[in-house]
């Protein structure tokens, strides 16, 4: 399995956030996207997740366990927001995502309890999501990555609200995912504590796109 990005460009308004970004990641590898605030990390990840149309270029997943048209279908996206409902319990949230997302070919998701255990919060899945602390909420959002199998993880500032212990826990999750042959792409300020990962430095604002006006 390979993730191939070729000549990606994206813009917001008429600012070209980045231009001509190409990379290739094989299964078991991770790519860390670094750069200052506003350098286009999030934009790149949203383009990869198919949530933002690229101005130019393509990102494809080749030789996956099942052919995919869009990379998004084979990917988890963990954005700044947790995509969990405050009114529902953690269990209901995770059960819903597990059923709705379903497993991608070539893997199986963990059960809700197991996933909660993995993020170190087993035993509180019966609580409403809204009653959890910010750090706990973030960890439960990570458990979402585990309940349904997706070969590609797209992570936007995954450890922003977390303490050191939780960071190392998360590094463990990513390492385990890579060892299963998965791919991880993470945008981050701080090192994730992963070994031997490639790094992509975003510089941000590569110019003003010529507008049609």
């Amino acid at each position: 399995m390979r993730l191939v990005a070729e000549g990606l460009s994206a813009r917001r308004g008429e600012d070209l956030i980045f231009r001509d970004i190409s990379f290739e990641i094989a299964g078991g590898e991770a790519l860390i996207v670094t750069g200052a605030n506003g350098s286009g990390k999030s934009t790149l990840l949203r383009v990869l997740a198919g949530l933002l149309a690229a101005e130019a270029g393509t990102a494809r997943l080749l030789a996956a366990a099942q052919p995919v048209e869009r990379l998004a279908e084979a990917a988890h996206y963990l954005g700044h927001r947790n995509a969990m409902k405050r009114e529902l319990t953690v269990d209901e949230n995770l059960t819903f995502w597990k059923a709705f997302l379903g497993d991608f070919a070539g893997g199986a998701g963990l059960s809700v309890d197991e996933a909660a255990d993995r993020v170190g919060l087993g035993g509180i899945v019966h609580l409403p999501f809204g009653t959890l602390s910010a750090g706990q909420q973030r960890r439960m959002a990570m458990a979402k990555l585990l309940v349904a199998w997706r070969p590609v993880w797209i992570l936007d500032e995954p450890t922003a609200a977390l303490d050191v212990a939780a960071e190392s826990m998360f590094a463990g999750l990513v390492t385990a995912h890579l060892s299963r042959g998965g791919i991880a792409i993470a945008a981050t300020h701080q090192p994730l504590g992963l070994d031997g990962v490639r790094e992509l430095r975003m510089t941000g604002f590569t110019g003003v796109a010529e507008t049609v006006w």
């Binding site: 997740a49 198919g50 949530l51 998004a72 279908e73 990917a75 996206y77 954005g79 700044h80 927001r81 947790n82 995509a83 969990m84 409902k85 405050r86 995502w97 709705f100 997302l101």
Partner: peptide, 14 residues
């Protein structure tokens, strides 16, 4: 949209 679920709904094969 506010809690980010919309992103995930948009991404799926469904």
């Amino acid at each position: 949209r506010e809690d980010g679920s919309l992103d995930l709904l948009l991404m799926q094969e469904t």
